[in-house]
Every structure is written in structure tokens, then in C-alpha cells.
Write a protein that binds this DNA or RNA. Structure first.
Lengths: 241, 241
DNA sequence: CCAAAAGTGTTTGTAATACACCCATGG
DNA sequence: CCATGGGTGTATTACAAACACTTTTGG
């Protein structure tokens, strides 16, 4: 950032303290995948005029943290998890977007594996809910815009980078991975082509294990090979789905 | 944005006015293309400890404008032009990024056709300079990070969307367009394949005009067909270079 | 032995790549 | 008539898409 040469430092500081007063917040679109559905963690709003609307989870940015740290803090506070996959998406700044004054918010999306513990946080707190993305209607503030943008970004990234694994358990079957892609991208994929492509990418570890307790032929289990991906990333990588 | 249920409105407002004090700015990476080189409009900084470093052009966000409006204002103030192509890229927020205090900045990149008038703004103002991207070394603040991110974004967008035309005059030759792609993306393209591809895209208007005053066979002139692009955009469009 | 999902190859069409010569103009 | 860049087509290769049957397990 930089300022016109005409302004001096004292003018500038006093401006910030008076008419340029602005709050900065972070809002997180926390995506979770649940074998069937893509979900987002929402919070029941208690703020006029949005009572009983759901909103994204967010908070003001504190003086001792940057935006990434702020997003991480919010994620940990809400989910109890650390080091989630997380991506800054955009800043939202319309004058009237927040009823209490000028609040500019920076949106992040993040990805979590929806296991029982995580589903429980919405049971232990009446105000939290894992809503299916498809079922979300009117949210508080401009959070529908934010959600739409984050979902678009997720879809783009899912096609280009191996981030889908963040939404699955460590060990997964190829069918689970395919289902994830089909659900999130809202399309149908050919089983054989999908498997061939994944095999060619060489980013999966064959665990030599199979499912148990299924009443059909058990599927092989795989894990994401972070190292193999890192090595290949340098010379360009495109998931290409 | 939303806040924990425990906080009430008065707490929150007083927080903004005291410890949450933050300034928000916009910084613009203004790219211009000059037949040979990709350039960025830079400004000589007069701020400690960055005297004589160049910086991006930016300003504080005013109370009556959102970020897009702020970026537009900065662009118009610096270039005299309106309605430039413009894209929000990311927010930068490290604690120590600005010597005068907590300043969170949102970066935009924008594209202009570098004609004589625009080149003159750097001649009429000693502090402004159209620097070749390749020649830029240490900038003030965290502006190298911002520039790098904006350049990456530009490269991605250039491959996917027909934004290159924003850097060229209204009438251009296929060679000029190819040169632009080769320069910005730093690669070599096959002339015949490039022309075939562009022809297939059907987003150019053949103006039935040719260059004049060149000492070789004059090239045909084309213009970007905005309407044709708009119609095809709905059903997906990828420049695919 | 039945139900249910896992696993596996081949063919066909389409898009990307590589490559060399003639053309129009100004000087 | 020469120098300079403009303009054009074809053959090859790699990748994407479409498609059906056999295998393994639990009940």
C-alpha cells in the first residue's frame, strides 16, 4: 500500500482514527463431506435483522494475528481441529453489508473430514448446524454471495488440485473418491475412466487392505501419497477431471 | 461475518473503536503492454524505511466506497481512464507489513492498453514509472509478494479467459496477439496452431482492414467480438492456450 | 445361489503438436 | 529484386469418451 505524496503521516494516522474507521473480519465456509452430501457448518444468527437466519462462522481479526491466523483460530474454536486445509477466497466490502457499521470481511473456505466427533459439535450446540449445501436458502448478511463464491472456488480447485482427499478419511476406496467428485461437481463420471486417470496420476498409495463388514465384494483401500504429489507438483500438476 | 453468541453489541462496537483499530487499503497492480514488454505502473515511495523504493499505487478505502469502487478511483486518479479491466486478487495482512500501523490491503490487478497518453503520465510525473515486469527488483512494503501473486493470476486468467485484448489496441493483428501471449506467459507458440485455435474460438471480428506503413506484407486487422464471447460464455469457455 | 458392488480393456473420436513453403509490400 | 514478416494445410500422436462383462463377498 502507498499514499499520495501530498499526504503526511500525521494526516494519515488521524484519518484512520476518525472517518476511516473500519472493522475487519474473517468468515469461514467450512465444507464437510458426509458419504452422500457436501455440507457447510452454519451458525444461527442472533443479530438484527437476521435473527433465526443462519450465517457462516466468523469473527473480528485480532490485532496480533494476520488473516490466515484469524481463520485458523476460528476453525479451531468451532471444530476443535488444527491445521485444516484452508484457502482465502475474496474480500467483501459493500457499505451496507453489516447492520452494525462498516465491516469488511475476508472469506476463507476450508475442508474437513466429517467424522462422528465433528457431527457431534452440531448436536452439542443447538446453534450450530451442518447444512447440506443444496438445502441452504437465505443466509444472514451477504453470506449467500460468499458461499456461492467459495463453492465455485472449491469446484475449480477440486478439478485442478488433489484437495478432495481433505474431505475423506485417511483410508478410502476409489468409489468413495469418485462419489465425492460426482457429488461436489454435480456430474457423473465413468468408473473405468476415473480409475485409469487416478492410476496414471500416481498419487495414491495402495494400502493392500480391503473394506470389512460390507455385504458385497470388499473394495481396496487407498491413501493419498503426499510425497509423490509434492515431487510432481514442481513440474506442473493438473488433476484433470 | 458473525460473532459468538456471548458477545453483545456494545462490547463489539467498543472493540472496533479501541483495540481492533485497523486501516484498510487497496493496492493496484496496473499492467500495461508495450509491443515488447509487460509493464507495471509504479510509484516512488516517500515513506520510511522505503524511500526511493518503488511501490504499487494504492490508497485507503474511503467510508463511502466499497473495494471495487476504491480500486476504480485509484485507477482513474492515476491513469485518467475509466472502466478498466480489474480483478480482485487477495488480501495481505501480516502484522508488520506497514511501518505506520495495522494496515490490511486488498490487491487488484488491472489491464490497460499502453498508448502514448498513458506513457506520458510517467513522463509528466517524476515519481511514476512504467517498469518492465522483468526488471523489477525490491519494492516497498510486501509489494513484491503482491506483484508475484497478481502476475500468477494474470497468467492463469490469460489462458482461460479472453482478457488479453484489454492489453492491445482495439484493432490488432494476430501476430500482436500471439506476441502478447508469448511475452506474458514466457513461452513460444506455433504460428499456424495459434491462428487455427483463434479461428476456432470465433471471438474475433475480421475488420477487412490491413496495416499500413509497414515495409512488408501488411497484416489483417481484427477486433475482439465481445458479443460473440458473451453468448458462448454461458456454456463454458476456455481460451485453452 | 442370489444380491450387490468391485474390478478390468478396447475401440473410437477429437484435440494438440510438429513442421515448410509461397505471398504481398516497401525500399 | 531483395528483405521482411504475413499467411496457409497436412500428417502424427496423445488424450478423452463410450461401453459390458466377470469377480468376490455376505447373507
Amino acid at each position: 500500500m502507498s499514499f499520495g505524496q501530498s499526504e503526511n503521516i500525521n494526516t494519515w494516522i488521524s484519518q484512520i482514527n476518525s472517518e476511516f474507521k473500519t472493522a475487519v473480519s474473517v468468515d469461514c465456509v467450512i465444507f464437510g463431506y458426509d458419504k452422500q452430501h457436501l455440507r457447510v457448518l452454519l451458525l444461527k444468527s442472533d443479530m438484527e435483522p437476521f435473527e433465526d437466519h443462519y450465517s457462516l462462522v466468523g469473527d473480528l481479526v485480532r490485532p496480533d494475528e494476520n488473516l490466515d491466523e484469524s481463520a485458523n483460530r476460528i476453525l479451531t474454536e468451532r471444530t476443535g481441529l488444527h491445521d485444516l486445509y484452508m484457502k482465502q477466497v475474496a474480500a467483501y466490502s459493500d457499505i451496507g453489508r453489516h447492520p452494525l457499521g462498516r465491516v469488511i470481511t475476508i472469506a476463507y473456505y476450508s475442508l474437513v473430514k466429517l467424522d462422528k466427533d465433528l457431527l457431534d459439535i452440531a448436536k452439542n450446540n443447538k446453534n450450530l448446524k451442518w447444512k447440506k449445501v443444496k438445502d441452504i436458502d437465505k443466509l444472514a448478511f451477504d453470506h449467500n454471495d460468499i458461499l456461492d463464491d467459495c463453492l465455485s472456488k472449491l469446484k475449480v480447485q477440486l478439478r485442478e488440485k488433489p484437495i478432495g482427499f481433505q474431505l475423506l478419511p485417511k483410508k478410502f476406496t476409489l468409489k468413495q473418491l469418485q462419489n465425492l467428485y460426482e457429488t461436489v461437481l454435480d456430474l457423473e463420471l465413468d468408473k473405468r475412466n476415473f480409475r485409469r486417470k487416478l492410476n496414471a496420476l500416481n498419487i495414491l498409495i495402495d494400502l493392500d487392505e480391503t473394506q470389512s463388514d460390507v455385504n458385497h465384494r470388499p473394495a481396496k483401500l487407498y491413501a493419498f501419497d503426499v510425497e509423490a504429489y509434492r515431487k510432481r507438483k514442481r513440474k506442473g500438476f493438473n488433476f484433470g477431471l
